[in-house]
Measured scan of single mutants.
Amino acid sequence: MTTFKLIINGKTLKGEITIEAVDAAEAEKIFKQYANDNGIDGEWTYDDATKTDTVTE
């Protein structure tokens, strides 16, 4: 398992969460579901060097 981080730069929700996932694709799926569940819809970027997804509304 690898640690992945999501940075949220939303209009109403800001912060970050960290998860353990098998790979980047699994982490992205989990993060996008989390964002959807919390009403966050924005531009996504991924930095492989830091294993960090960022969503900005």
Rank of each mutant, 00 (worst) to 15 (best):
38 N>E: 04
13 L>K: 05
14 K>F: 10
33 Q>C: 14
22 V>H: 11
43 E>A: 09
53 D>P: 08
20 E>K: 11
36 N>W: 14
56 T>R: 06
33 Q>K: 12
36 N>Q: 14
37 D>M: 12
54 T>A: 05
30 I>R: 04
48 D>N: 09
4 F>A: 01
38 N>K: 08
19 I>V: 09
19 I>M: 02
20 E>N: 07
27 A>R: 01
27 A>L: 06
12 T>N: 09
55 V>K: 04
11 K>G: 08
15 G>E: 09
13 L>N: 05
57 E>Y: 06
42 G>Y: 09
18 T>Q: 06
8 I>Q: 00
50 T>L: 08
48 D>L: 12
12 T>C: 15
21 A>W: 14
28 E>V: 11
46 Y>P: 02
5 K>H: 08
28 E>W: 14
13 L>E: 04
55 V>C: 10
42 G>Q: 04
57 E>K: 04
17 I>E: 00
53 D>V: 15
47 D>Y: 10
50 T>A: 07
45 T>Q: 07
26 E>R: 05
57 E>S: 06
35 A>D: 03
51 K>I: 04
26 E>Y: 07
24 A>D: 01
7 I>L: 03
16 E>L: 09
7 I>A: 01
34 Y>D: 02
16 E>D: 04
56 T>V: 09
49 A>F: 10
31 F>D: 00
22 V>N: 07
37 D>F: 10
20 E>Y: 14
46 Y>H: 11
30 I>A: 04
2 T>D: 03
56 T>K: 06
22 V>Q: 10
17 I>G: 00
37 D>K: 09
46 Y>T: 04
22 V>C: 13
56 T>Q: 05
24 A>R: 15
9 N>A: 07
5 K>W: 10
11 K>T: 10
31 F>Y: 01
21 A>S: 02
12 T>V: 11
12 T>L: 09
40 I>R: 01
32 K>H: 07
33 Q>I: 08
31 F>T: 00
44 W>H: 02
6 L>A: 01
51 K>Q: 11
54 T>H: 07
10 G>M: 14
46 Y>K: 03
42 G>F: 10
20 E>A: 06
10 G>E: 01
43 E>Y: 12
41 D>T: 12
3 T>L: 12
10 G>L: 14
19 I>D: 00
41 D>Q: 12
33 Q>V: 07
53 D>S: 15
1 M>N: 04
49 A>Q: 10
26 E>I: 05
32 K>T: 04
50 T>Y: 07
51 K>H: 11
53 D>F: 15
4 F>N: 01
32 K>I: 06
11 K>P: 07
6 L>K: 00
13 L>S: 07
49 A>H: 07
17 I>T: 00
6 L>Y: 12
13 L>T: 06
8 I>P: 00
10 G>C: 15
35 A>V: 10
26 E>H: 09
15 G>I: 15
4 F>C: 11
15 G>N: 07
15 G>Y: 15
5 K>S: 03
55 V>T: 04
55 V>Q: 05
45 T>W: 10
57 E>M: 10
46 Y>L: 05
2 T>G: 04
22 V>S: 09
33 Q>T: 07
19 I>E: 00
5 K>A: 02
29 K>E: 05
33 Q>L: 09
35 A>C: 15
30 I>F: 13
49 A>T: 10
1 M>E: 02
5 K>Y: 12
17 I>H: 02
43 E>H: 10
57 E>Q: 09
35 A>K: 02
57 E>T: 09
50 T>Q: 06
7 I>N: 01
10 G>K: 03
1 M>P: 05
32 K>E: 01
44 W>V: 02
34 Y>C: 11
7 I>K: 04
2 T>Y: 15
45 T>A: 08
52 T>H: 04
28 E>N: 11
42 G>N: 03
12 T>G: 08
4 F>D: 01
21 A>D: 01
25 A>G: 06
18 T>W: 13
33 Q>E: 05
55 V>S: 07
8 I>D: 00
55 V>I: 11
45 T>D: 06
34 Y>K: 01
54 T>S: 05
57 E>I: 13
42 G>V: 08
36 N>G: 07
51 K>L: 09
27 A>E: 01
57 E>F: 08
41 D>W: 14
13 L>R: 04
43 E>L: 10
46 Y>S: 03
34 Y>W: 15
2 T>A: 07
45 T>C: 14
30 I>K: 04
1 M>V: 06
14 K>Y: 13
33 Q>Y: 05
34 Y>Q: 00
3 T>R: 12
38 N>S: 10
13 L>P: 01
35 A>S: 03
40 I>Y: 03
11 K>Y: 12
14 K>I: 11
17 I>Y: 10
6 L>R: 00
55 V>H: 04
25 A>C: 15
56 T>M: 06
39 G>V: 02
54 T>C: 13
17 I>K: 01
2 T>W: 14
37 D>G: 04
26 E>G: 04
30 I>S: 03
33 Q>W: 08
45 T>S: 11
32 K>D: 00
11 K>D: 06
5 K>D: 01
44 W>E: 02
32 K>Y: 05
47 D>G: 04
37 D>P: 02
57 E>D: 06
3 T>M: 12
4 F>K: 01
46 Y>A: 02
32 K>Q: 08
24 A>L: 13
51 K>G: 08
25 A>Y: 10
43 E>R: 08
27 A>D: 00
28 E>C: 15
44 W>N: 03
37 D>R: 07
3 T>A: 06
42 G>S: 04
38 N>T: 04
21 A>H: 04
19 I>Y: 02
36 N>F: 15
38 N>W: 14
21 A>Y: 11
12 T>I: 11
21 A>R: 03
6 L>T: 01
29 K>I: 09
49 A>Y: 09
13 L>A: 05
17 I>F: 12
9 N>L: 12
49 A>E: 11
41 D>H: 13
37 D>C: 14
23 D>G: 04
31 F>R: 00
16 E>I: 13
28 E>Q: 14
36 N>Y: 14
53 D>G: 15
24 A>G: 05
50 T>M: 08
22 V>E: 05
40 I>E: 02
46 Y>W: 12
35 A>Y: 05
11 K>R: 11
49 A>D: 10
24 A>E: 05
